[in-house]
Design a protein around this nucleic acid. Sequence first.
DNA 1: AAGTGGTCTAGACCACGAC
DNA 2: TCGTGGTCTAGACCACTTA
Lengths: 233, 233
Amino acid sequence: MTDTDTNSWRGVQSELLRRINEKEWPAGSLVPNEVDLAEEFGCARTTVNRAMRELADAGLLVRRRKAGTRVATHPASRVVLDIPIIRLEVEQRNAEWRQSLIEKTACVPPVRITSRLGLDPDAQMLHVRSLHFADNHPFLHEDRWMNIAALPGVERVDFSAVSSNEWLIENAPYTTGDIAFSAMNADAALADLLEAPLGAAIFVVDRITWDKDIPITSVRLSYAPGYRMNTKI
Amino acid sequence: MTDTDTNSWRGVQSELLRRINEKEWPAGSLVPNEVDLAEEFGCARTTVNRAMRELADAGLLVRRRKAGTRVATHPASRVVLDIPIIRLEVEQRNAEWRQSLIEKTACVPPVRITSRLGLDPDAQMLHVRSLHFADNHPFLHEDRWMNIAALPGVERVDFSAVSSNEWLIENAPYTTGDIAFSAMNADAALADLLEAPLGAAIFVVDRITWDKDIPITSVRLSYAPGYRMNTKI
DNA sequence: AAGTGGTCTAGACCACGAC
DNA sequence: TCGTGGTCTAGACCACTTA
C-alpha cells in the first residue's frame, strides 16, 4: 500500500515515473505493454492500466492502441486552477466581502459579445455590472452579460442581494466554457471604480459559458492592481 | 458504449451529472452508495466507482468512507492550463521562433529569490535572461535563476542555442512547483526590450520549481502586451 | 491480420472514520 | 462496530490502428 509496493497502482506509478525521470526510458521511446509490465511487477493488468492512464492524463505518456505507449517528448506541464466564488475568495483572505450593484439593464449587447456567443445580434441580454469589495477596498469589477432566454426569471433577481456570480453558479449549470487571462491598462472608468491610477496594470479574466450549445453568460472580471492568481503544480 | 448507456462508465457519469445539474440531487445531499447505484444501473460497482471518482476529482462530489458521497455545495470550477515550451507556443501560432540571450552570469541573487527558494542567501546562482521572438517581434522576456548545485554542468550550457526553458524541461525533472499569474506595468527596461510603451500592461507568470525539496529554478515570464492565455473548462 | 490499449465483470479484502 | 469507498484480481470482449 505504500508508494514503493509495485503491486499497488501508486507503487507502479511511482516506479514508472522514476524510469521516465531518470531517463531509463528516454523521451520518445516505446515502453513495454501492459501485460508485460503487469508480469514484471507481479500485479494485475488493471493495476498497470490505472497507473499508466493517469500518467497519460498528466501528459507524461502518449498511448495509442496497437502502436503502444511512448514517453512524451515535450511534457507540457499541466496546471490546475480552482476558480471559486468571488465572495469565498475574498473571505479566504480573511477579508469582509460586500458588493455594490452598478448597473442592471436589459439591452442589446455590443456585437463582440453576441458574435462570440453565437447569438442573434438583435437579441436583448441582461447587462449586470457590480463592484466587489474586500474590507471596503475595491477588489474586482464584474461586467456580465446574461442570456435572458436561457435563464428564466433572471430579470426579477435582486442582484444587489446576491452577486450574479454566485446566483449563476447555484442556478445555471454549464457544460463547457472558454477562459482567457490577460493584462490591460485601466481606462478612466475602471481606474475610478477600482480606485487605481489611470493606466494601472489590471489582471483580467474573460469567461464564456455554455450549457450544451446554449450560451449562458459572458463575463469580464477586472481585478484591482496587485492581484495575483496562485496555484501549485 | 455511448454516453447514454448506463452500463459504461461514461454513461453512468453523464447520468450522475444530469441528476446533479438538474438538482434531482440537490447540493449538499447524500447520494446513494456505489452498490445501490450499480444495481440500479445494472453494472458492476467498479464502473460506478470510476464514474464517481472522476466527478470527485473534478470537485463535483465529495466522498468520504463510511460517511458516503455528497454533492459538493460550492463547486469551484476547475480550469486546466497546459503550459508548453515557449518555442512550441510560438510555433503553434504559426510564427517563427527565435531567442536572443541577454545575460548569463553566476552571481548572488537578490534576497527575494533566495528566501522564496529556501537557499543560503550567499549562494551563487546562475542568472539567465533572454528574449523570445515570434516572427521577429518580441514575444516574452524570460528572467531565470537556476540552482547551480542542483544542476550539474549548467554553467557550461550554451543558452543561446537552447533556451533555458527548454533545457530545463529536458534535463531537470521537478516534482512540485508554485505558479502565480499577475499583471504589472512595464518599467523602462522591460518596455525597451518588449518594444512596448512605458507602463504598458504586462501579463506575468512567476514560477518556482523544486525536485523533492531541492530548489531548481525561479523564473519570471513577462509577455508582450496583448498576450492572452486561453483554455477551456 | 494481429497487437495494443479501453473497458467491463464478479468477487474479494481492506482502510477509514462516523456512530 | 460496521458501513462506505479504495483498491486489487483474473478473466473477458472489444475498438482502434498499424503492419
